[in-house]
Design a protein around this nucleic acid. Structure first.
Length: 732
DNA sequence: CCCAAGGTATTTTTT
DNA sequence: ATACCTTGGG
């Protein structure tokens, strides 16, 4: 073996700081890298892999690296290839779902799937559950499909199958279990799996096939996990199964950035990691290369209020930088206008639009920013929204394609049997569904049987027969075509373009046609690489899986150099020179729904920490004194998180004064009651304090004299009606 | 089968 | 405010 020292490995370690080096070159044992925001987490992962290959002579075949998003996976792949100077080879780099999918494609028989199994996205899943609920003759009001979906996905994320749900005589649980079980068999019959199923099925595949398990355990001696704090129970179990006793995991994450508890992520996974793996070497990355000292001081101070942290303190050697600016806005319009003026100022001082991000807690807040930016002709881009492969017209076309692959794909059948409308109404479809259910047939077979038996009215029968014939015809004609020709033929034969042009007049219809054309281009640009996640699949199946697994970009790129608008969640992992952290009001952020539960409030605080640490040079925080939300006006106190930021790092742009005296263009707000002023001078919007309940804001006043009452929204005690005579409120 | 009216819910999101 | 979805009538 060539001596390690003879090989020049300086490029792997040279640019790293001490703890980064320690992590990259650590001995083989469980490693937990606690990587603070902006501390070079991806760099450590990438360099670790290079170290394994180039210094420890580990074969790329023995390495598996898993992330959450496709974006993270492709970034990692790119950076590894760049550092190694060669393709990734036999290494497995992908998302939990991508890697699970790969396992299932390779071992579809052992996993009890059909070879051409397809993937349900969460919209498909919901439709499927709706159908199941109907078939069980349940009232959808009483058993909302969204709730059932939540229940089913939760079970799967916890590794629970319907059979193992305990029967405690609780009728709700029993009913949900029935829905779950029925849904599961419907999926099985149709040859489709949902996202959670993908993970659970691949876990069971390994667990129940000792040979396979042994094979993969022996192969993957090095398992690396990114964003470990976001793993759920199932993902963690998957990792532990794969690692076995022989392959210590290399986990990178940050407990302070765990913001997905609400969708099943278990912060405990990272908190108890050293408990599960007693030999763990924990390495903290605390030097931050992103933000100024003042921004880090604010972030550290806020997050310090959480309990049970693994504990980190970010620092920088780059100096304090500017103070954080805090703007108190009258209302959301004032907030948006101020931010707009700050954006103009930034650009006038030779900054770029793309260096700026406006962050908010909930999507609904983007509207005002959009219209104000529009007015000022400032280019912007809103993150989120429908992704390409989630658009209705695209899913229609994909459903036709899926039916050519597998006629028993019920979700696809259901979707396009009358799309475009071909005279098959609800009544007819119901008959088909009913027949399918009572005879355990797919919708396709049921339709065929009913047509053969002449069970429909002449008109309906012809229409259904026409549909079956169309699908068969399409399938036969595209069989030997190239992928893009297949897609093109399907779109043409289905007449989807004509349908949408007729149905959605104007821009919308044209946009849908454009999207369908785009789908053809996407097919053209799709390349099958035998070494990637789509091993063992034909082109079409690979393309369909790709569409489900990687839904594509949200909203078209509206120019390059533009201001970025997104939720705090969407901002995780990103960084910008100038960041606006908006809507910092109690009840909005932290969200009202979180404030009485400590663990939820702490997650909000972590979200705040994420928001603050997105800023490189300048952070501008804003909140409003009144805000229009859901049609009515709310009066909120400044976010409690603001109190946690040391005032020494904050510069207040406009000192708080009473809104009502300032008299900024008062919009036609109809006050909820007539009570404007009463003997005590308590008015709506007044900040008050109460002996027992503490600080709050008056949100409504009614009555007069000794019966005068005020509704006060208290910071810690919620909203209460108080009789002014007794309440003894102090104006603040 | 299509359209209009009315009822309802409304944090955060990836795969 | 509003968007989305179900429902009822033409």
């Amino acid at each position: 073996m060539t001596t390690i020292s003879s090989m020049d490995v300086s490029h792997i370690l040279d640019q790293l700081n001490k703890p980064q080096r320690e992590a990259v070159s650590a001995q083989s044992q469980p490693i937990l890298v606690l990587a603070g925001a902006g501390s070079g987490k991806t760099r450590v992962l990438v360099h670790r892999i290079a170290w394994l290959i180039q210094v420890e002579n580990i074969s790329p075949f023995a390495i598996l690296s898993v992330t959450f998003t496709n974006k993270a996976a492709s970034e990692m792949r790119g950076r590894i290839e760049q550092l190694l100077g060669s393709p990734i080879g036999g290494m497995w780099v992908g998302t939990f779902h991508g890697l699970s999918h790969r396992l299932l494609r390779q071992h579809w028989q052992e996993a009890n799937l059909i070879q051409s199994f397809q993937i349900l996205d969460s919209d498909d899943q919901l439709r499927m559950i709706k159908r199941v609920t109907q078939s069980l003759q349940l009232d959808e009001k009483e058993w909302p499909s969204k709730d059932s979906r939540w229940y089913i996905n939760n079970c799967k994320d916890e590794g629970i199958r319907p059979q193992s749900i305990e029967d405690r005589g609780d009728s709700t649980t029993q009913q949900l279990r029935t829905i779950y079980a029925t849904y599961e068999s419907a999926c099985q019959r149709a040859g489709v799996i949902d996202f959670a199923e993908m993970l659970l099925r691949s876990l069971e595949l390994l667990r129940d096939n000792p040979n396979l398990l042994q094979h993969y355990q022996q192969r993957f001696r090095h398992v690396l996990i990114d964003e470990f704090q976001d793993t759920n129970t199932l993902q963690y179990a998957w990792i532990r199964l794969l690692c076995g006793d022989q392959s210590p995991p290399f986990a990178v994450g940050d407990d302070d950035q765990s913001i997905y508890g609400w969708r099943g992520a278990k912060i405990e996974n990272i908190q108890h990691f050293t408990h599960h793996f007693p030999q763990t070497n924990t390495i903290k990355l605390e030097q931050n290369y992103r933000s100024t000292g003042n921004i880090l001081k604010a972030a550290n101070a806020v997050i310090a209020n959480n309990e049970g942290r693994l504990g980190k303190n970010l620092w920088t050697d780059q100096g304090d930088g500017d103070l954080i600016h805090l703007y108190t806005a009258f209302n959301e319009l004032d907030e948006a206008r101020y931010i707009t003026s700050r954006i103009e100022q930034w650009v006038n001082e030779s900054g770029q639009y793309q260096e700026i991000a406006i962050l908010y807690r909930s999507n609904a807040q983007s509207r005002v920013f959009e219209s104000t930016l529009n007015e000022q002709a400032i280019p912007y881009r809103v993150y989120g929204g429908l992704r390409f492969f989630e658009r209705a017209e695209i899913k229609d076309a994909l459903s036709y394609l899926r039916l050519t692959v597998n006629r028993h794909d019920d979700p696809s059948f259901d979707r396009v049997i009358n799309q475009p409308t071909r005279g098959i109404g609800n009544k007819t479809v119901d008959i088909i569904r009913h027949y399918a259910r009572s005879n355990s047939l797919s919708l396709w077979d049921a339709s065929k049987a009913l047509v053969d038996a002449n069970s429909f009215t002449a008109r309906a029968g012809n229409a259904v027969f026409g549909f079956l014939t169309l699908i068969n015809h399409i399938a036969n004609t595209i069989i030997d075509l190239s992928l893009e020709d297949q897609v093109e033929k399907v779109i043409a034969a289905s007449k989807l373009k004509e349908h949408y042009l007729k149905k959605d007049k104007g821009d919308l219809g044209q946009a849908r046609v454009d999207n369908l054309n785009e789908l053809i281009s996407a097919a053209q640009g799709f390349h099958y690489r035998p070494d990637d996640e789509h091993a063992d699949m034909d082109f079409l199946t690979a393309f369909l899986s790709h569409a489900a697994l990687e839904a594509g970009e949200g909203q078209a790129k509206a120019g390059n150099n533009c201001v970025q608008l997104m939720t705090l969640h969407a901002a995780k992992g990103l960084e910008f020179p100038l960041v606006f952290l908006t809507g910092m009001e109690d009840g909005l952020f932290p969200s009202q729904r979180t404030i009485d539960e400590k663990s939820k409030l702490e997650e909000e605080r972590r979200l705040c920490y994420v928001g603050i640490t997105r800023a490189e040079k300048q952070l501008v925080i804003s909140y409003t004194e009144q805000r229009r939300l859901y049609g009515s006006i709310s009066y909120n106190l400044p976010s409690r998180f603001l109190d946690e930021i040391p005032s020494s790092v904050v510069h207040e742009i406009r000192p708080k004064t009473n809104v009502w005296q300032r008299n900024v263009q008062t919009p036609k707000t109809k006050l909820k009651s007539t009570g404007k002023i009463n003997e005590t001078g308590i008015k709506i919007g007044q900040q008050v304090s109460h002996g027992k309940f503490g600080e709050g804001v008056v949100t409504d006043v009614e009555g007069a004299g000794e019966h005068a009452r005020a509704q006060v929204n208290f910071k810690f005690s919620g909203s209460k009606w108080l009789v002014l005579n007794y309440a003894n409120l102090k104006k603040l």
